[in-house]
Design a protein around this nucleic acid. Structure first.
Lengths: 196, 196, 196, 196
DNA sequence: CATGAATGAGAATTCATTCAT
DNA sequence: AATGAATGAATTCTCATTCAT
């Protein structure tokens, strides 16, 4: 009977808070396992507010997915952009992935848990494809230069990225932090898998 | 209207049907995303019947998890058991993984989606550990013989297994079947990552 | 946490109780104005039970609508069936309508409030049409015999039925019961409208 | 971002726009079925604006109801006012009703859908009564002059007005326009019901 | 053992209303 | 006066679980 109101931030801030809360919770407990009211609570807003910013739970996951995917894409693009040998670029990519998984831990987990889920819409899938495309280009160039083993770029990417994901999950489960030494060692190992 | 036994099904058959239904559905839509009544429907039994065989939804996932994990463990143990060089054993392991992911696709997907989830109980975790231990032993032996690169066995396993998972997910998403050629190529690549 | 169960009636009884509750409430407060839990409460069942019997609120109104419409149709058909002059048949129809509006007051009100609403599905509309058709046939016969004024049967029916509805609504609002005298007088008046 | 006045609209214009939007929507979808924000959207104002002009949703329906009822009352009074036989006055009344239902279709539908609803306040009911009273006077005069059949004026009005409503609803549902011919025929029929 | 109707807590979503700007 | 983001209670609907048959 007594509706309320509060304020203190711009709509964009509210939206951002909701997205932040959603990445964290859905990355931890899956889409179906995360009630909207809990997202609201963590974002510090009322449940109804979420529906002013997103048309529904599904629209929310998709927004989160795109944001995370683009963030990771940007991170990888930065790494791939600079000069240097293919080995050096790979070094930057591997480190970039590590940085991303550390600094945006929630986003990384979220992306891993929501790959190819049926509730992801066409736009989200398009974003995912465009990010993959960027990396595939790098692989193709390296293959053409004889620096990487031949084969479908998608396969090599799947192997290398899968390896990284495995590493991160292991680190999280084993309660060990993925430190400098481990990252350097894994980078070396994975390059052993990719090089010609 | 007439309660009683389902025609020609032993209790064990019923239990197996429930487990099969649960692997498929939960491997596809996650634990939280899979309603118990739907599992019942797919298993061809009434909703209540599930509760005669499992004390609740959580007990059901755990039963499923253990069964799948043990199946995969058995598959890997068989591969690791025979004679041959470390390279040859790895060959059998990689092929074993492939076999398993093809023949028990649902189980493989289920396991991947339910790694380290909070609803897995201590027994399930123990099963998981025991399976990992078997593989770790192989890695340690190979490292001692100078056939595999040094470093924590868990890390190498995480990288290799992660790579395989990445491969399978890519194949499913890309709608490409993981054929002989791709498996052979990936095996070669991953061995490049592991060998000393 | 503690789900329940109660029983004591057959599923058909439960369904009937829900329908009865829905007619009464929706006939009184409109479709949108009637919360599902209130229907449940009046039917003496839990809210969730409604969804075991009807796929949603909309399916519920449609079921109610069809049942009421068919009941009224049956009532009118009985009246139209017997022998006698057209005037006598009209007498029975008018009385039949009166009976129906008295004995099934809720159903009558419900039908009036839910005519041509957007949530009525094609099947409901078909039922409505078939009932109207029966009456239209009577009108056509009477017109052919020169006992009723010419013109589209639908128009005459709309006028006469509209008059009856107006009468009932007035009686309800004016808190006067529609007694024998009033019914006889109105019958005479309406026949004055219809006769050739 | 910049609060303030809507460009070139006087408060009275805004109020009128809200009322217009409300008649149309509530006449179509009932009181409970019409969200306030939707009324605002159709009126081209912000949701909050409605609450500067009306103390709540209920006050809004009542304002709408009174406006519509008075408009229809005025229409009927004009018809009843002029000279001529009772038959001629009835002709003007019937035509007046037709005019009103055509030119103010939304208002007519609104009034029909909101008769005797519990959220109508005493003032609205008083308005309704005063309009009815005007017509009842005409009926009483005609009865006294022996031009109309005897009986409670309210009953005759209910029958005749009900017939008209039935006609309009049929026309709307049957997707037939209520044309000159139909109106003339129905007028003749209804006079057959009313005349002595 | 199996059934499936019933339950009721809780999830997703809507909407009347408020109030800082 | 007007705005529109925010609120939170109410609404529709789902689903894990129970138990009479």
């Amino acid at each position: 009977m007594a509706p309320g109101h509060s304020q203190g931030q711009s709509p964009a801030d509210t939206r951002a808070a909701i997205l932040r809360a959603a990445v964290a919770l859905m990355g931890d407990r899956s889409y179906a396992g995360t009630p909207v009211p809990e997202v609201a609570a963590r974002a510090g807003v009322a449940a109804g507010t979420i529906y002013r910013h997103f048309s529904g739970k599904q629209a929310l996951v998709n927004a989160v997915y795109r944001e995370c995917k683009l963030a990771m894409g940007a991170c990888l693009n930065r790494a791939a952009a600079g000069a240097g040998s293919h080995r050096e670029v790979f070094h930057r990519l591997w480190r970039g992935l590590w940085e991303f998984s550390r600094k945006q831990r929630d986003a990384f987990r979220f992306l891993e848990l929501h790959r190819h889920q049926p509730y992801l819409d066409t736009e989200s899938q398009a974003v995912a494809r465009s990010v993959s495309e960027g990396i595939a280009d790098f692989v193709r160039t390296a293959q053409a230069a004889g620096a990487m083993r031949p084969g479908p770029p998608e396969m090599l990417i799947a192997l290398a990225f899968g390896a990284f994901v495995g590493l991160v999950k292991e680190a999280e489960a084993g309660h060990t932090t993925l430190d400098e030494t481990a990252v350097a060692a894994s980078e070396d190992a994975v390059w052993g898998m990719l090089r010609a």
